[in-house]
Structures are given as structure tokens and as C-alpha cells.
Nucleic acid binder design. Sequence first.
DNA 1: ACGAAAAAAGTGAACGTTCATTCTTTTTTT
DNA 2: AAAAAAAGAATGAACGTTCACTTTTTTCGT
Lengths: 197, 197
Amino acid sequence: MAKLQKSIDKRDALVRATIDLVNNNGFHATPISKIAKLANVSPATIYLYFDNKQDLVNKVYVEVKAVFTDYAFKTYSPTMTVEEGFELIWKRIADFKLNQTRESLFLAQCDNAPIIDEASRQAGISHLKPLLDLWHRGKEEGVINEISDYLLYAYSINPLSFLMVMQQRGVLKIEASDIEQAYQAAWNSIKKCTNNG
Amino acid sequence: MAKLQKSIDKRDALVRATIDLVNNNGFHATPISKIAKLANVSPATIYLYFDNKQDLVNKVYVEVKAVFTDYAFKTYSPTMTVEEGFELIWKRIADFKLNQTRESLFLAQCDNAPIIDEASRQAGISHLKPLLDLWHRGKEEGVINEISDYLLYAYSINPLSFLMVMQQRGVLKIEASDIEQAYQAAWNSIKKCTNNG
DNA sequence: ACGAAAAAAGTGAACGTTCATTCTTTTTTT
DNA sequence: AAAAAAAGAATGAACGTTCACTTTTTTCGT
């Protein structure tokens, strides 16, 4: 679609401006004119890079989600044990959510409100496949409890969401020990525990 | 503010219409005109019941949050043991989130996007005080681990959010056993575990 | 290596539409 | 008949998008 002799800087500035403004005002309260102004660009220029406002937010979502999953799986290898892999991925997700608050807040908004279209949502979910594969392997090996796949997300990823939002709002400052505690709790919930039933 | 000889039915219809439309389209993509139409009311009539659109969504949020916490704490009594109280509240929260999806989805949206104003957000949080009191009591009695108060929300409430969203989208159907598993996992994470460290 | 012509990138103003809110009139209640 | 409630039409502001135009970059014959 994009023939792209166009400035990558300008496109990046547009993406950044979109994230910042959507974080602060929500998608529908961020006019194209403000995105353009923050990116030092004419409103019309946006339409050289994106089809329309919806296409803009769809693409920003998928790209940010890709950055998120790239980070989460960066140092992971399928040759790791389930325990190692889970701990590694979980902690990198935590790290991302707590340090890349710009991106994380944007993803949280898109994931909880009808902003992006269904195809982009699916594209985002598909990036999490390595984690689902690891989860399956853990169940096959008997390391992880026999529970629904969907609980994977709920147990391992979600507990940090609230912390992230609170940190972003300046309510609390998260310490390394908090992360370690949160991880231990998540893992204890998931692993097969021989002294439990 | 409201002198209220006005119809309570009309007000209820406006609240219901707001929740439904915000759930489906997001706050800023739901015009006053559509809320009025769905509630079988003139746009002008809304301004007899609410100051403006922002005031409308603020009040709907606080009222829905109150319904949520009333339900969560309905059968709870501070004379219960920490274990009993925690299980009861957790399961009622789960029940609400999974069965009152209209209200839960609306709350999730308001909690994750800059829709409502800060005062309304605080008003919503303040309703959760009984749970925080229980948490403190659990720590005093040594039943609950010495971890940050903020983790309370992350551990005990949040794991259901993802499930709720998925269920609402028709991706999965949640069974009673799933709830029981999720509760056990949350509680196992929270309680002091003598065979841990 | 040069510069004119063509193409691409970028722009500010303007368009039609939609929005929240107000104004004026009608209906309902007391 | 007076007052409150509700309605619908009206209004000005703001929005996404397009248009006509300018500026910058690339192409290419010499």
C-alpha cells in the first residue's frame, strides 16, 4: 500500500502523536487536526500515510502489539524448559508493561474499548502464539494444571494491568520485589502442585 | 440538583441506553441524539436530568459501580473469618462480572480509558473499602502474605477481566468449574503458604 | 554534470456533516 | 390557568476528509 519514498520520520511522529493523544484523551476525543499539529504536519499529510483515521489507529495498534510481543519473546527459545520459558516471558511482559507505559496504556485502551476493528484485534492476538505453545507443552509435560487455555492470559498477564494503570496515574511506585512477588504468585497458581488435591 | 418530579422511568431508560451504546460504540462515538432515540426521549430532555454529556457518563459510572459493590458485599459481614469473607466476596465479584456483562463491560471501559473525570473515579474506588479492610485484617492475623495493598486488586479482581471480555465477545463459555479454579488460584496466591520460603 | 520537466510529497483552506447544547413551542400535570 | 416537563427545530462549533495548489525530489536527455 505505502510506496514509501515518504519520510519514515514523519510516519513515526504521527504514530507517536497518536499514542500520546489517545492515551490522554481517548481515540474519539483526539481529532486528526491535533495529531497533525503534534506531529508538525498538515492534516492532509496524514492521508498520504494512512487511508483514514480508523486505518491509522488500526495500524498503530497492530504495530505497538508487535513491539510488545517482540519484546516479550526476545530472549525466549522453545528449547527452554517450561518453567524457564514461563518465568522469562512473564517477567519481560511485566517489564514492558511497567516501563513502556506509553505503549501499554495504549494497548489497554484498545483492548477494552471498541476502538479498533476485529481484524486488527485478531492480528494482535495471533502474535501471542509462542506463549500459547509453551502453555500447551507445559500441560503435556504435566508441569501446568489442566485448565482452560483462556486462563493463561488471565493468570499470567492480567494481574499486572491494574498495577500498570495505577503506576501510570502516579498512585504507586512499583519496586523490583513487587514484580518478583507477582511472578511467584502467578506461577504458583499455574503450576501443578503435588500437595494440592 | 434534580428536583425530581420527573419520571424515574425516563431516567432509567437514559442510563440503560447510555450503557448499551457506550458498550457497543465507545463513549465519544455515542452521540446524545442516539441515547435520546434509544431511550424514546428528546435530546433536550436529557438536559432536564443531567447537566451535560460528561455529567451523564460520570453519574452512570458511579451508579453502576455502586450496584457492583452492593452486589459484591451483599452477603458479607465483617464478623466472618478472613477466608470466608475473601471467598464470598471474590465469588460474588466473579458472578457479577460474568453474569452482569452489560454493567461490567461498561465499568471496564471507564476504568481503562479517560472517559470519566477524576472525582468520579475516586468515588468509585471508595466503594471498595470493605474489601481493603478485610485485606488489612488478613495481614494482621497473618493469614495473608505481607504484600502491597495494591496487589489486592491485581490478584483478586483482575484475573477475571480477560475472561469476561472474551465471554462477552462470544469467544468462550465460562463454566462453574472455571470460576472455582480461578478462585482457588487467586486464594493460593494470596494466602500465607507455610511450605513456601 | 546540468537543468528542465515530471512525479511525488506536502500544504492550508474549504466542504459537508455531525455533534452538544439551547431556544421556542407544545403537552402534561397540578 | 399556571407551572413543570417534554419535544423538535435551530445553532454554532468541531470534526474527518477532500481539493487545488506549492514545494521538494527524482528522472533523464544533453
